[in-house]
Design a protein around this nucleic acid. Structure first.
Length: 427
DNA sequence: GTTGAGCGTT
């Protein structure tokens, strides 16, 4: 519940009540960042409920004590439930697993998804606003292909991660009088659907490429603080809060001795659910790692309340090999020199969409992971709904991405956090 | 009428 921060669910709203009216009404309590009334997707008719987001979460207490009548109807205000919380079932493993996926993928793009664009906004206006944050390399405002109507969202790309971070520092930006919401764009080529063919060139983002700098750890290192809890298994989850920048897995070093996923064997996780990819520096305890609870003060995003809570989730996968090493030049072998395998990794991604995944233990005891499973099913955790999750903003831990390098066999396993694994196998 | 939409183009 506390993950909802300043968001209230408002039920029983009259069909005559508009978002503006909601906002006007609730503004008497404090600054309202946004209001939304949910409508039926096809008929457009209001569904009778909506959400109000206050800038200051502490305002909720007062609002919750009052009765509210808007447009003649008594509405009910409750704290918004996150999706996880809505699921009475509660039994499925780690609900966050999949959610972080989106964030994971996002880590590497310098593109920002911008939602809530006013229909009147032009690309120029869009660009001009964002240029104050850095050099804009691309601007896209989406229009319906057939009706040509603005779809209310678009993309903005920068040439540096820093600019992106500056923009993402706050979720809502005021643009031409309305608020727009920003999130990391999901990488288009992340192939949510299934296309397996990606990256011909073996380019998986970041690999190597970004090498040294590109800000390996991007700002939000505050996460480090969360590295302490759980000494044992814990460790790394912290990385990543939003992405451990990853461009290079550089982390290892980083510190604390924790190991996390180094390069791993390429089996991209996949079906089995191992997200992680073992790796060189795998931390044997990893499996627990994910569970650090979420950062208390994680940034709030009205849209993704789930986030802050999160277990780090998933990803950590299996850590397998101890020692191992053998990055990619390792012959087809699963890298892991020494190690063998996966020790009980957990599935990371794929919470919902893939059976068996969602956080269940997979212990394979010593799986040997031989040469990489490239497993075509990679992508376990890439449910379509990925965008909802957005770990990056949420502060959830990062996400890993297990990709196979060009060689096909070795992968880099990143991480903790949920993962998005993709198999590399392109050959 | 009571718990959430949206992710691309060249």
């Amino acid at each position: 519940m506390d993950s909802d921060q300043g968001k209230l669910f408002i039920g029983g709203i009259s069909w005559d009540t508009s978002e503006d009216k909601l906002k006007e009404y609730f503004s008497k309590y404090g600054e309202v960042v946004q209001t939304v009334i949910m409508r039926d997707k096809v008929t457009g008719r209001p569904r009778g409920f909506g959400f109000v987001v206050f800038a200051d979460p502490s305002i909720l207490d007062r609002v919750l004590q009052d009765k509210h009548t808007i447009d003649g109807r008594t509405v009910e205000a409750k704290r918004a439930l996150s999706r996880e919380e809505q699921q009475t079932s509660s039994r499925s493993g780690n609900p966050n697993a999949g959610r972080s996926v989106g964030g994971a993928g996002n880590v590497r793009t310098k593109k920002i998804f911008v939602g809530g664009l006013p229909p009147t906004l032009t690309e120029e206006g869009f660009r001009q606003y964002f240029e104050t944050y850095g050099h804009v390399t691309d601007v896209v405002v989406m229009y319906d292909q057939t009706t040509q109507r603005p779809r209310g969202f678009g993309f903005i790309s920068f040439d540096t991660e820093e600019a992106v971070d500056r923009v993402l520092h706050k979720t809502f930006h005021e643009l031409n009088g309305k608020l727009v919401e920003v999130k990391r764009a999901l990488p288009k080529d992340a192939n949510p659907g299934g296309g397996n063919r990606q990256m011909g060139g073996g380019s998986f983002q970041g690999y190597g490429g970004s090498g040294p700098n590109t800000n390996t750890y991007d700002g939000r290192m505050e996460a480090t603080r969360y590295m302490q809890p759980q000494t044992a298994g814990g460790g790394f989850p912290a990385y990543g809060s939003s992405g451990y920048g990853a461009p290079g897995y550089g982390y290892g070093a980083a510190g604390n001795g924790v190991g996390y996923g180094g390069y791993g064997v390429g089996y991209g996780g996949a079906s089995a659910g191992y997200a992680g990819a073992a790796g060189a520096y795998g931390n044997p305890n990893a499996p627990n790692a994910g569970y650090v609870s979420g950062p208390p003060g994680a940034p709030r995003s009205p849209w993704s309340n789930q986030a802050p809570s999160g277990y780090g989730s998933a990803g950590y996968g299996a850590n397998a090999g101890y020692g191992a090493a053998a990055p990619w030049n390792a012959p087809g072998v699963g890298g892991a020199t020494g190690g063998y395998g996966v020790v009980g990794g957990r599935s990371s991604g794929a919470p919902n969409s893939i059976a068996g995944a969602g956080g269940e233990q997979q212990g394979t005891g010593g799986g040997y992971m031989g040469s990489g499973y490239g497993d075509a099913n990679g992508n376990p955790g890439y449910p379509n709904a990925a965008w909802r999750s957005d770990a990056s903003q949420a502060g959830s831990y990062g996400a890993a991405q297990a990709n196979g390098p060009p060689s096909g066999q070795v992968g880099y396993g990143g991480g903790y956090g949920s993962a998005q694994s993709r198999q590399a196998q392109q050959q």
